[in-house]
């Protein structure tokens, strides 16, 4: 069993390199060969590189957030997108772009971006807390999913309302960003995106015990020495930072957060959450990198929305799980 785990991780790491290579050199209107690569290759350094790194960051953060949410809710059908948390973050991003524009906050790059990121995180925290409060009243994971869907619809409706009040340029950025995209992140954005994502993911190393204990529920985790309420509070905060951060830069990315932890549990028949954390980071990156490559190569000269690909991977998995009344 131990040997298998090692081999599986090795395969994932190799896949990550392949997916990264494909995304860097082929995911666009023209392919670049390694021999042509130079320091002043504009397409490579200004377009492909930030997009590939963004795919890795978005895949890691959303999958880790999904894993945390599934543990907190003890529900394998939880995830930042399906519970409406991404929508809450999106709505706050739109609000902050509008408010930031009128308050003249956005003229400075770092202040503007930070303002948007903090708003997105606040949106995630709000929706997660709301869903958690509701989850105490319902004990069915499917009903929780429906409530998440409704919250996401409400946020969407508010977002449409906001778009009416925005001018043409911000409207266009709202719409393209609202569809979810890995291509809007610049190298400058990455200066904010990368460190916060890394710190949040590393912070999870301090929560290995709680992540494992919380699966046993409130009473048993307290009884084996893990403070349930405070661990849950910090974990909700970290998952909200991970979701809000990625949503601020990429918009809502569908189904990665719910599907990757499920896949991870299917591949590694383990309940060790430290193992799943590592594999979710790898798997999430691989899936978004492949999705990005496919989105840019399936139809020549056309770049498909990334959410189209991730939905095709994620949604069938969720349906399969609902039929198979067995919790992964």
């Amino acid at each position: 069993m131990q040997e298998n785990t090692g081999i599986k991780f090795l395969v994932l790491i190799i896949l990550l390199f392949i997916a990264g290579y494909l995304s860097l050199f082929f995911a666009g209107s023209e392919s670049i060969t390694v021999s042509e690569l130079s320091l002043n290759n504009f397409i490579f350094w200004q377009i492909r590189f930030p997009k590939t790194l963004t795919a890795i960051l978005a895949g890691s953060t959303l999958s880790a957030a999904g894993l945390i949410l599934q543990i907190i809710f003890r529900n394998p059908l939880a995830g930042p997108y399906v519970l409406g948390i991404s929508s809450g973050a999106s709505l706050m991003v739109s609000l902050s772009i509008l408010a930031g524009g009128s308050l003249n906050l956005l003229s400075n790059f770092f202040i503007g971006k930070s303002f948007i990121v903090v708003s997105a995180i606040a949106g995630s925290v709000l929706v997660t807390t709301l869903i958690l409060a509701i989850s105490k009243k319902v004990n069915s994971s499917v009903i929780l999913l429906l409530i998440g869907l409704m919250i996401s619809q409400i946020c969407g409706a508010l977002q449409i309302g906001l778009e009416y009040f925005s001018d043409a340029t911000s409207l266009k950025s709202f719409v393209t960003w609202g569809m979810g995209s890995l291509a809007n992140t610049t190298n400058f954005d990455l200066l904010i995106f990368l460190p916060i994502a890394l710190i949040s993911l590393l912070a999870l190393l301090f929560f290995i015990k709680p992540l494992n204990a919380l699966l046993l529920g409130e009473n048993y985790s307290q009884n084996i020495g893990v403070n349930f309420n405070s661990s849950r509070f910090y974990l909700i905060f970290i998952s909200s930072v991970l979701t809000g951060l990625t949503t601020a830069f990429c918009g809502p990315i569908a189904f990665v957060g719910i599907a990757v932890p499920i896949l991870s549990r299917m591949i590694f028949k383990s309940s060790k959450q430290q193992l799943h954390l590592a594999s979710c980071i790898l798997l999430g990156s691989i899936i978004l990198l492949f999705s990005d490559t496919l989105a840019n190569t399936l139809i020549k000269n056309i770049s498909l929305p990334i959410n189209m690909l991730t939905t095709f991977i994620g949604a069938p998995l969720v349906i399969y799980l609902m039929f198979k009344n067995k919790s992964w």
């Binding site: 543990i71 290995i208 015990k209 699966l215 046993l216 549990r265 028949k269 309940s271 992964w328």
Partner: peptide, 22 residues
């Protein structure tokens, strides 16, 4: 759920005695 086996639950009993990486 979550791939939890009987062994996993029993080993959770040793959690108060393990390091922070469990």
């Amino acid at each position: 759920g979550f791939n939890l086996t009987a062994f996993d639950v029993v080993s959770a009993g040793q959690m108060p005695y393990t390091n922070s990486f469990n």
